[in-house]
């Protein structure tokens, strides 16, 4: 919350935008690492996901925050590729545990949510400006 006053519509939409941005960053990291190949299962990249949690100021007035960013327990894909320079003694390599299509769907949803919050912010801003001009 900005300051110690009650939560206003700018706090609500602004913080929700920050949360969605964290989610977009997580998606970008996952997409960047999709198809990454490593020589052992432990080293392989696993997709990360933010966990959203609502922050309530008073009943009905709440915004959202990222409680934590989890590393999913999806299993990296084992691929037999003896010619790969990173292959282990069995000739196996591990591909990053990232579901690209799911990440892309998530990205679109994140972008939509971000846009919605921008729209809320714009509407609230113009209403406030009209209110302060009242009687002039």
């Amino acid at each position: 919350m900005s300051g110690s006053g009650p939560m206003n519509v700018f706090d609500i939409a602004g913080r929700a935008m920050s949360a969605q941005l964290v989610r977009l960053n997580a998606t970008a990291s996952n997409m960047a690492n999709a198809g990454n190949v490593t020589g052992s299962e432990a080293e392989a990249y696993r997709a990360i996901k933010p966990v959203f949690q609502s922050v309530t100021d008073k009943p009905g007035v709440s915004t959202v925050k990222v409680a934590n960013v989890l590393t999913t327990d999806a299993k990296p894909t084992k691929r037999h590729d003896p010619n790969h320079p990173l292959a282990d003694k069995n000739g196996d390599v591990w591909e990053a545990a990232v579901d690209s299509s799911a990440e892309l769907v998530d990205m679109i949803e994140t972008a939509r949510m971000y846009q919605n919050n921008v729209q809320v912010l714009n509407t609230a801003k113009s209403l406030m400006l009209e209110t302060i001009r009242i009687g002039k």
């Binding site: 913080r15 929700a16 959202v64 809320v120």
Partner: peptide, 9 residues
């Protein structure tokens, strides 16, 4: 605005 902000919580 709170409802829209929490659309994916």
């Amino acid at each position: 605005a709170s409802n829209i902000a929490n659309a994916s919580t």
